[in-house]
Amino acid sequence: MGETKIIESIKGLSKEEYLLKGHIACAGCGATIALRLLFKALGNRVIMVIPACCSSVIPGPYPYTSFAVPVQNIIFESTGATASGVVAALRKRGINDVTVVGWAGDGGTFDIGIQALSGAAERGTDFIYICYDNEAYGNTGVQRSGATPYGAWTTTTPTGKKERKKDMPFIMAAHKIPYIATACPSYPIDFIRKLRKAREIKGTRFIHLLAPCPTGWRYDASKTVQMGRLAVQTGMWVLFEIEYGRFKLNPPSDELIDKAKRRPLEEYLTLQGRFRRLGEEDIQKKQKWVDEDWERYRRYHQTMCLI
């Protein structure tokens, strides 16, 4: 493993592919772009623990798989627990150069899997947990989850969700784990840097990854990278890290503290069919929440206080 290798451009990425051809993800799947980057960042000395989610389907059915790393598939709510078992067995067997990665969707993290994740984090389990968040139960056909944002259409919120999204990174921050980061595959260098940094830290590391989903969000599959960028540029999604309790905004989010620099939220919302029903008032409400969150982030970032 050695030193954390920082790359300046995606041209510096490994040519090795551990996400092989033949996977069966939807066209334009943000999570799959992120998986490819994940393997490039961490290489193949990785054991994945994957619960029921899109990524239990993406590798393809038995007897094939498009993942060139070992995978333990597990029941929906158990990523944190099963990863704890893998970590314990590796330690007992004296294997210390393999990174255990839990890779779960938002349903498996925010909702049904939050107990096992909380337990694993509280026990200081030495693994990286990545929540790839497409803001709904994508694999079962887009039902609302605790990660679905206010106003979004899903098949179980046909007139739009009435509640706000949980603040998952700060729930994890309350566990006092050493490393928390947000990411988005539209910013691959940032994501890769965070993965490599996470790999060098002992204990539970949590990465919350926004994974744009053309199928659930109702936008054209060619626009996934743009959708992620818009999420960040409007300030709807914020790239940050919380390292040993210290919060820090990362580029390009660190340039967006001044509201004038953030693009209006409409630009992000109007491109997605799931927000089609949002009225002017709803958009204002959402804009207000974004601005309130930013005030909090500004304070954390500028004062460098302990979260």
């Binding site: 597990i74 158990s78 627990a81 099963t82 078992g85 314990a88 007992k92 067997r93 337990g119």
Partner: peptide
């Protein structure tokens, strides 16, 4: 672990990893 459900899920991970 924090529940029996997680106890069994952790056992699955540990046994699958060779313990």
């Amino acid at each position: 672990v924090e529940s029996e459900h997680s106890a069994m899920a952790a056992c699955i991970g540990a046994a699958a990893a060779g313990a």
